[in-house]
Amino acid sequence: MEKKSALLVGVGGQGAILVSKILVAGLMQAGYDVKMSEVHGMSQRGGSVSTQVHWGEKVYSPVIGKGAADIVVAFEKMEAVRYADFLKPDGVAVINDYEIPSSTIAAGLCEYPEGCLEAMQNHFKCFTLNAGEIAMQLGNAKCMNVVLFGAMTKALAMDDIDWEAIITDTVPAKFLELNLAAYRAGRNAAQ
């Protein structure tokens, strides 16, 4: 199988790490060679963050440059636009219809760009959902990341992997039901 690359992008603290952990566990169990890369440090202080996951028969580079991602999962919609040029022209985007103003926007130095979702939808196959709202309906805003993960698995269409079993193995038992519900809700919402 040719190498596939996923880019998870968002704002520090949105829980992309757990999503990449579940994703990687599933990919490894399916027998793929896997590499991932993340950047720590300065970027954690409310900055833009990205995690890359690559899988295939054999993976060399743990990072990709522009025009090389098969899927971008944006935990925040402006981040989808920021990383749009990392997507292959036939790449897929999963976008959380959720807005986090940057510190520069909060300070009134600039404005949140309009039309992020439409811009992405005009150019790529997109799965858009309001994962924040879905998570709130499930009773815990923090499971937004797993809602997005559900949508991501729908977009990936890797149905030979039993993602529910992987989630069961990965998340703490007391949050299992919540996370399974979040995963299913994300899959259903991803249209």
Partner: peptide, 11 residues
């Protein structure tokens, strides 16, 4: 995509 993201510096 024709829309530019504004910078999101750490704070």
């Amino acid at each position: 995509v024709g829309v530019a993201a504004v910078s999101r510096p750490p704070a």
